[in-house]
Design a protein around this nucleic acid. Structure first.
Lengths: 202, 202
DNA sequence: CCTTTTTGTTATACTGTGTAACAATCGCTT
DNA sequence: AAGCGATTGTTACACAGTATAACAAAAAGG
């Protein structure tokens, strides 16, 4: 069952409407608080009839979710290859790639962290990242302790997102190469190093 | 300048109204989504006139913020004493105290992580925790590199909050004593260990 | 070109926010 | 205990945003 790219041809009018609405919402979020954005505002800027919004989405939340889902899929791919890495030197390079990618799509991530209703989206992103690292880190944990593995993967996922958020708020000031080192040292290596100590946790 | 307990005597009717509204909102958040709660619902459950709400608060956001602010002040005190610790054994004990405290006031933290509009509150909490650790960790960093210190304290603060959130969602299953070990190993020790590697980051 | 689908226009019902005026109640002081 | 001042309750209303319906106009695709 293919999740996306279902071979169904979409009416170009529908494609156009959805794209206009998405772009309109994104640009509005970058300007003002998400909670203060009304559907009317979005449709006005998109130059689309008010009622047309409801023919495609149930709420601004849903529209935002879809936009973020699509945009973040690529980052998950990056992280997936990263989690597969085991060589120490490669980890640093891949960490740099993450932050280069974030820098390219900075708007998308700013929206992820800025909009209010994003708590659920963020949780979903954390869970997806955690699952990726969960598989990659099972061989690292000495005892096959599910609690330890869960804590580890959750810690890595949330730490990575927080680091990205911090970086964006700091105007992406240490360049990706430096952030790659931070990523490797602060998140990956230190977590792996802490595993042995935690093998006894129930 | 005393922040709280200003010696001004507050009208008992005002005190009562504010307490009723606060309790009403808290109980509602524990039941349903914050975004779906209306002011009318809060005043109805509080058995208070609708207009009375606006005589005390501008929005549900503000009411929630004040409730969380008061409740979380105590945790910050705990963490402050914790950050002052340097002995390895004491760190683990103090970490246990944190999770015991969270367990006692679990409702409060569930609200912190559950309600949608809490992004700003959470950021404020992160910043407060980060500041505490910032002062405590300056002697640890070899070079007085502000970037490194900022990343470190931010990483500790967000990791701690994420760990608390994970713990609550797992029904507080590893008891506080075990979580104290996790806290020490995964967050404190590993971060301190990573500092030396990161001294070169601009 | 003709059918189907999508979009736009207009009107309407409904919910929630926020304010105003006035009456009723409560707390506090004397 | 009485009365003054502050708070709360009642009722009414204006307003913004959501959501739907019916019908006309426009665009897609065979």
């Amino acid at each position: 069952m293919p999740k996306k790219n279902s071979p169904v041809k979409i009416d170009p009018r529908v494609r156009r409407t959805r794209r206009l609405l998405r772009d309109s919402l994104v640009s509005l979020i970058l300007e003002k608080d998400f909670a203060s954005i009304s559907i009317r505002e979005v449709t006005d800027r998109a130059e689309v009839a008010y009622i047309t919004f409801f023919r495609h989405f149930e709420s601004l939340d849903q529209l935002l979710m879809e936009a973020l889902d699509d945009g973040l899929a690529e980052l998950l791919g990056h992280i997936e290859t990263l989690a597969g890495q085991s060589e120490t030197s490669a980890l640093e390079t891949e960490g740099r790639l993450i932050f280069e990618y974030v820098g390219q799509k900075a708007d998308l991530f700013r929206i992820l962290f800025k909009s209010q209703s994003v708590t659920r989206v963020r949780k979903k992103v954390v869970r997806n990242i955690a699952i990726i690292f969960q598989r990659a880190c099972i061989p690292l944990a000495r005892s096959n302790n599910p609690v330890t593995i869960n804590i580890m993967s959750n810690h890595i996922a949330t730490s990575l997102l927080s680091l990205i958020e911090w970086w964006l708020e700091n105007n992406m000031s240490p360049p990706p190469a430096e952030m790659g080192k931070v990523y490797k040292g602060l998140i990956i290596d230190s977590t792996v190093g802490a595993v042995n100590t935690l093998s006894s946790v129930r």
